[in-house]
Design a protein around this nucleic acid. Sequence first.
DNA 1: ACTTGACTTCGAGTGCGCTCGAACTGGAAG
DNA 2: CTTCCAGTTCGAGCGCACTCGAAGTCAAGT
Lengths: 129, 129
Amino acid sequence: MDISTREMSLTVGEAAERVGLTTYTLRWYEQEGLVGRVGRDSSGRRRYTESDVNWLFLLTRLRRTGMPVRDMRRYAELARHGDSTLGARRALFEAHRARVLARMAELEEDLKVLEHKIDAYRRAEEESG
Amino acid sequence: MDISTREMSLTVGEAAERVGLTTYTLRWYEQEGLVGRVGRDSSGRRRYTESDVNWLFLLTRLRRTGMPVRDMRRYAELARHGDSTLGARRALFEAHRARVLARMAELEEDLKVLEHKIDAYRRAEEESG
DNA sequence: ACTTGACTTCGAGTGCGCTCGAACTGGAAG
DNA sequence: CTTCCAGTTCGAGCGCACTCGAAGTCAAGT
């Protein structure tokens, strides 16, 4: 039982790799207030804890579902204000879930258009190729 | 049976409204080669035919599924080259369909994360609210 | 001791997809 | 006949989300 496996802390490069963002983006997220001030070591280098990494991971999911950085910032601010904002955070997620579901419904519609087109091309190829 | 119902032609504003884009965007699409040169009336105004509008509609679906304008341009170029490019166009759509399916799978994953979070907030609210 | 390479901050630059302002024109309504 | 509105072209500008370059620091490896 190595103490380092219990008290993990990662450099910006390691954290970036783990969450699939670049070091540039991680620093920028911090600057933009999407992440609270990350701890530094004695020489001023960022040290990411496991909970920092979990938070970053959540941010990547929000981003990937199309949440604007502006809204992620708002969410981060709520989170920084503790338990009194739990309801607001849930509301934010529920609203976002609705948007994601709507987006998925759109994509399914659009997929149909794509498939129709593919079929039409197939038929046209048979006829003239 | 009015002849105007058979030979429809729309102004840029009407076409924009019908496909859900702005007039700016319609002109820009033309300029960018996403749409072949649209016909003009005697005083130089654009007149969109039904097939122009159908084409534009298809473009909106490609856009909405995340196809970059660059790729839409490539597709438009293929379409302008006639039946010899049917296979290429089908391939382009099939590749795009794969990306859309992958995107939908991602969204479903991300949706799970969202629902977990919502549940967690609900539980936390019960406990401390 | 020196080199290497990942880190620091800062401000500037990039790519995408529009979006708009300016200056002008031309058809239709009152 | 005038007023109005929607259209024209052109180039410039914008918002978003990064992405990068410059100049410097620091710790570890050879």
